[in-house]
Write a protein that binds this DNA or RNA. Structure first.
Lengths: 342, 342
DNA sequence: GTTCATATTGGGATCGTTCCCATAATGAGT
DNA sequence: ACTCATTATGGGAACGATCCCAATATGAAC
């Protein structure tokens, strides 16, 4: 039973020095200590099994060595991979990472803001549901935003380049011979994405001299139900087979779900219709056919967000950083190569 | 710029009371305060925008309101769902949850043990890679183990009932008319599972009077490569089609991967061969055909682990608790109904 | 009016560190 | 031998809360 805790005092007494000296030894701030004293103190620490209490130390130094990562859902692979990357780069620097799931709820988000204001965290990395920039600024701790926010001018931001990611998907479809491309995206919750995607889509069509058919711009929820709805909407389109040769989905969940739903009507992705997704979630390589998609650089986003935060915590007044990483094509089997047959 | 922080002192001064009184107001311990004073203090708090510093409070009260969840990998849906359930039950009680990914490495595990000893956490929930029970006990904080550990007699444990989970999978195969069942499991890392699964498998065969063919007990890594290896091992078995009618895989990743690999040889799960998995990861419902599998009660495990920890933190000396939750069948399309054709 | 219980408040001490300043010791430079 | 810098150490005061105990006021009971 090692129940009573040993503090710096016990160590000091055993080593026959003052607590100040022990403090110099354990906090590697490089205060000068003679070699003999150093050894005596270290031996005492060893002997007593002393552990430094960082919480107590933090009270004086105003550092908690804790960082909050606020994301919509830990159990969503997209976010958990970002969280993992953040952890993997922050922990070697001595930080502990708390992951908060907001479940897209403002109320839960507020609760984390509360926590952050109780002097709990040295920094925050977040994907806010709301665009409440003032709230973030009033936190009083360094913050890094994940996602593409035009509103947040003076806050560090890390995210995917949606315009480019949409574009390379479109380009791939075009190169493989597709000329009648439908786009499925969401119009609520995160309108900012819709506008960016739809814009990239229209721009691309215009650039290639392709006609824009408003009926081919589908708006669905970005979940499995949305994918089923999408499939049915597509099929109910008059003379659909002549009007669309490919479907660009807002995310992989929608793409996979649409693929499965379409199969029920005998339409096989990669044979009868081309389908391309966005994100590259783990399941996408395991579907049949494996889904061609645009991979979002989750790991780079997480690592970069952590690095930016690290920098910001050292220098709160440095220049604001904005990092947008490109998506990359994950070519699999759900897109038909129409180059020969056109 | 609200940079200077307000403490209990400032509030006390503004309200014209002592800090003791302010403390009584903010810590709802029910010390007696007159209504007028209460109001004055609350007004002062409001006015100054005061936030209680829980870290400082914790120094005195020896509570950090932080809990560590140590699991192999946050980005693995199996574990992240457990972590989410833990968070969802602990946060309403005022705790913050730190998730640590060990990546199955003892070294990383040790690093978290270090952290836990620095008076950082009030409790720990963990799935240890090693079976180092002594280390857990010497942590000095309440701990709850996730998984099935026979070794850990006097530590709270929460997990899946592997014997039962294997059994209901076997039973389902038997009921649907299968008599030549192969089992694929792992033999390194977590031998405890192998022994339990293989035992349940053999017991079941014996009980039903079915012969045990050692060649049908495959040992593979429980990852995607393992699934491919499994498919090839199965096909290289002499006269395999006559010897096996169904394949029970150690987890869904192996099952899905094997399913995909087998398709390359023209063998379709659910038509030519029955395949059943274990875990029910999100991808399993999205494969083609959707995978029949035994669902592990991830959420119940997480919630229960959190509840047991909560109880343990209140009463460190209470009786040790052991909870094993049953798996349940997720019937989809990868198992053939052979009842008519036998 | 005295005594006693109860409600309310304030004043340190305390939790385990770090930080600042004072002091002592050492040795080099003149 | 006398200053002066440098190194090594100790002694308190912080950090921001809680907690214990004492002090005062209030009112009821005798």
């Amino acid at each position: 039973m090692n129940k009573q805790k040993i503090s710096i005092h016990e160590v000091a007494r055993l080593a026959g020095v003052s607590k100040s000296t022990v403090s110099r030894v354990i906090s590697d701030k490089g205060g000068s200590v003679s070699p003999e004293t150093l050894e005596r103190v270290q031996k005492a620490i060893e002997q007593l099994g002393y552990r430094r209490n960082i919480v107590a130390a933090g009270l004086r130094t105003q550092k908690t060595y804790m960082v909050l990562v606020m994301i919509p859902d830990v159990a969503n692979p997209f976010w958990s991979e970002i969280a993992r990357a953040v952890q993997d780069t922050l922990e070697p620097e001595g930080y502990s990472v708390v992951i908060g799931s907001t479940y897209w709820s403002e109320e839960r988000e507020s609760r984390y803001y509360e926590l952050a204001q109780m002097a709990r965290f040295d920094g925050v990395i977040l994907n806010s549901v709301t665009d409440n920039i003032d709230k973030i600024k009033s936190l009083g701790v360094p913050a890094v935003l994940i996602g593409e926010r035009t509103a947040a001018q003076d806050i560090d931001t890390v995210g995917t380049d949606t315009l480019q990611a949409t574009r390379i998907g479109m380009e791939y479809l075009y190169e493989t011979g597709h000329r009648k491309i439908a786009l499925a995206t969401s119009d609520h919750g995160s309108e900012r994405y819709l506008s960016l995607r739809a814009r990239a889509y229209k721009d691309f069509l215009h650039e290639k001299g392709l006609p824009f058919d408003p009926a081919l711009l589908f708006s669905v929820n970005l979940d499995a139900e949305g994918g089923q709805a999408l499939a049915r909407q597509l099929l109910s389109l008059q003379n659909w087979a002549a009007r669309v040769d490919s479907l660009f989905c807002g995310n992989d969940i929608v793409a996979i779900s649409a693929m499965n739903e379409l199969r029920k009507y005998g339409i096989i992705a990669g044979i009868d219709l081309s389908i391309i997704g966005m994100d590259d979630i783990p399941a996408s390589s395991q579907t049949y056919p494996p889904l061609t998609t645009v991979r979002k650089p989750r790991e780079r986003i997480g690592v970069s967000a952590a690095q930016v935060l690290l920098k910001r915590m050292c220098d709160p007044l440095g220049p604001v950083e904005k990092h947008l990483f490109p998506g990359e094509l994950a070519v699999r089997d759900s897109v038909i190569d129409r180059r020969g047959t056109r």
